[in-house]
Simulated assay, not measured.
Amino acid sequence: MSHPTATAAAGGDQLEFLVRGEHHAPNGTLLGFWLYLMSDCLIFAALFATYGVLSQSFAGGPTGAELFDLPLIMLNTSFLLLSSITYGFSLLQMQQGKLRGTLIWLAITGLLGTAFLSVELYEFYHLIHQGAGPQRSAFLTAFFALVGTHGLHVTIGVIWLVTLLLQLSKHGLTLSNRRRVFCLSMFWHFLDVIWIGVFTFVYLMGSMS
Rank of each mutant, 00 (worst) to 15 (best):
N76M: 07
A59H: 15
P62R: 00
F79T: 07
G101K: 11
W188R: 10
H150L: 01
N27F: 06
H153M: 02
G32A: 15
L204Q: 04
L146M: 05
Q130W: 06
T114A: 14
M1D: 12
A142R: 04
A8V: 06
Q56A: 12
G21E: 12
A115W: 07
M208D: 02
L67M: 01
A132I: 04
L173M: 09
I73L: 04
G32V: 06
W195I: 02
G206D: 00
L191T: 04
T77Y: 07
T77C: 10
G110H: 06
L47S: 04
L161D: 01
L37W: 02
L166K: 09
L15M: 14
L165P: 03
L42A: 09
H189S: 06
L67P: 00
A46W: 08
M208R: 05
E16P: 07
D192Q: 10
R179N: 13
T63P: 00
W34D: 13
T63C: 00
G131E: 03
P71H: 10
L37G: 05
S176Q: 13
T86P: 08
G101I: 04
F139N: 01
Q14D: 14
A65R: 00
S78F: 04
F48P: 08
S137T: 00
H189K: 03
A142M: 01
A142I: 01
L37R: 03
L70D: 00
T155L: 11
A45R: 10
S118R: 10
G172I: 02
Q135I: 07
T102L: 00
L152Y: 13
H189P: 01
M38H: 11
H153S: 08
T102R: 04
L15R: 13
L103K: 03
P71C: 08
F143V: 01
W34N: 11
H129R: 11
I108E: 13
V198K: 04
W188E: 08
T149C: 13
T7N: 15
I194T: 13
L204C: 01
T163Y: 13
G101F: 02
R179C: 01
L111D: 15
S169G: 12
G133E: 06
G28F: 09
G172T: 05
M74S: 15
V193D: 13
F199T: 09
P71N: 12
P4T: 03
F187L: 09
L42H: 09
G157K: 08
S185G: 15
R179P: 03
T29Q: 14
H171P: 02
S176P: 05
L80V: 14
V53Y: 11
F17P: 06
P71G: 10
T109Q: 05
G11A: 14
L42M: 08
M38R: 15
L72I: 00
H23S: 13
D40Q: 10
A107V: 04
L127M: 12
L42S: 06
S176N: 09
G110Q: 10
S90L: 08
L81P: 08
A107R: 15
G60S: 03
W195E: 06
L99M: 07
G151R: 03
F143W: 06
T7S: 15
L112S: 03
C183Q: 13
G131S: 07
A138H: 14
G157T: 10
H3F: 11
S169Q: 14
Q167D: 15
L164N: 03
T77R: 14
E120W: 03
M74D: 15
M1L: 10
F44H: 12
